[in-house]
C-alpha cells in the first residue's frame, strides 16, 4: 500500500491547469508547423502562421493560448495499491483547479446550473473521470476543453447494418457541419462501440492521444487514415476560410458493443487541443 497526500494531487493539478493553457503541446505545434508546408491556400498559410506566432507569445508571456481556458476535464488513473490521505480526493482536485485558474489568470467559464446561469467564479467543478488500475501510481491527465468546439460534437446511435462505411460518413458529416465554428484546423476524437456514455468517453480519450499517433488495430488504423484524408478534402480549411488543412489529426478508439448497436461519438476539438500528463 502506498500512501499519497491529496495535497500532492492538488498541487499537480494546479500546475497542470496553467501549463496546459499557456504552453501549446509540442505535438500540436509540430502538426501546425507541418501543415504550413502543405496548406494550399495563401490565406490558410497566413492563418497557420498566426497560430504558431500566437503560441510563441503565449509561452513567452505565460498567458493563455486562447481566452477560452475551458472546462477542466481531469482523468485520474489510480493504482489499486494507493491510499489517499489528508482529505477527499475530488475536493483536492477541485481545489487544484481553483488555485490554477486563479493564480494562472485563466478565465472562469463555468456556470452553476445549465439553466440558471450564474458563474461559479473559480472554474470549478471540474469534470473528473477516475479509473482504478493495477499498481501503486497515480496517472493524471488535465485536458481543459473549450466549448466552441465542444458544442460541435455529436453522438450517433447507429445500426449494425450501417457498418463501418455508415460510421465514416456520419463522422465526416459532423466535421462538415461544424465548418468554421470550432476553430479549424480541428482535432477529431472518435469513439466507436460500448454504450451511449462509453463511446462519448472514448471520443474524449481519443483527443488525449498525441497527434500523429495511430491505432494499433489494423481496420481502425485504416479508418483513421481515410477519415483524415476525407476531412481534409472538404475544403473547410483553417478558420473555415478554405484550404486543405481542416483537421490536424483524427484519432479513433473502439470498444466491444451490444449485438443491437453501433454507437459512434465524435468529439471535436480545436487547434489548441490541450492535454498535459504526469505520474505521481
Amino acid at each position: 500500500m502506498r500512501e499519497i497526500s491529496v495535497d500532492l494531487v492538488r498541487d499537480a493539478i494546479k500546475t497542470m491547469c496553467i501549463e496546459a493553457n499557456c504552453i501549446l503541446s509540442d505535438d500540436v505545434y509540430q502538426a501546425i508547423e507541418k501543415a504550413k508546408t502543405t496548406e494550399s491556400s495563401a490565406v490558410g498559410r497566413e492563418l497557420l502562421c498566426q497560430l504558431t506566432k500566437n503560441a510563441d507569445i503565449a509561452k513567452r508571456d505565460y498567458m493563455p493560448i486562447c481566452q477560452d481556458t475551458g472546462m477542466a476535464i481531469i482523468f485520474l488513473e489510480i493504482g489499486q495499491d494507493v491510499h489517499f490521505y489528508g482529505g477527499y480526493l475530488e475536493d483536492a482536485v477541485n481545489e487544484g483547479v481553483r488555485l490554477g485558474y486563479e493564480e494562472g489568470y485563466l478565465r472562469k467559464s463555468i456556470v452553476k446550473d445549465p439553466f440558471i446561469r450564474v458563474n461559479t467564479g473559480d472554474n470549478t467543478p471540474a469534470v473528473i473521470h477516475t479509473q482504478i488500475v493495477p499498481g501503486d501510481k497515480v496517472d493524471i491527465t488535465v485536458a481543459p476543453k473549450g466549448f466552441g468546439s465542444e458544442n460541435m460534437s455529436r453522438i450517433f446511435m447507429m445500426k449494425p447494418s450501417d457498418g463501418i462505411e455508415g460510421a465514416k460518413d456520419a463522422i465526416v458529416q459532423a466535421v462538415k457541419e461544424a465548418g468554421p465554428n470550432p476553430c479549424p484546423p480541428m482535432v477529431v476524437g472518435v469513439g466507436c462501440g460500448g454504450s451511449f456514455e462509453k463511446c462519448a468517453l472514448l471520443a474524449k480519450k481519443a483527443l488525449l492521444r498525441p497527434i500523429g499517433s495511430v491505432s494499433p488495430i489494423p481496420h481502425i488504423y485504416e479508418m483513421e487514415k481515410e477519415l483524415l484524408e476525407r476531412m481534409n478534402k472538404t475544403g473547410i480549411g483553417p478558420q473555415g476560410l478554405g484550404g486543405n488543412t481542416t483537421v490536424l489529426g483524427v484519432h479513433v478508439e473502439s470498444f466491444p458493443t451490444h449485438i443491437a448497436g453501433m454507437p459512434i461519438a465524435v468529439n471535436i476539438s480545436c487547434h489548441v487541443t490541450r492535454h498535459t500528463h504526469t505520474i505521481l
Binding site: 500566437n54 507569445i57 480545436c270 489548441v272
Partner: peptide, 24 residues
C-alpha cells in the same frame, strides 16, 4: 482568428468594464 487570443490581446491598448461586472 479564433484561438489566437494572445496575439489579438497585443492590439488592445485600453480595457474597461462598463457594465454587468457581475457576469465576470
Amino acid at each position: 482568428t479564433g484561438g489566437a487570443g494572445a496575439l489579438l490581446a497585443n492590439h488592445i491598448k485600453k480595457s474597461e468594464v462598463i457594465a454587468y461586472e457581475d457576469l465576470g
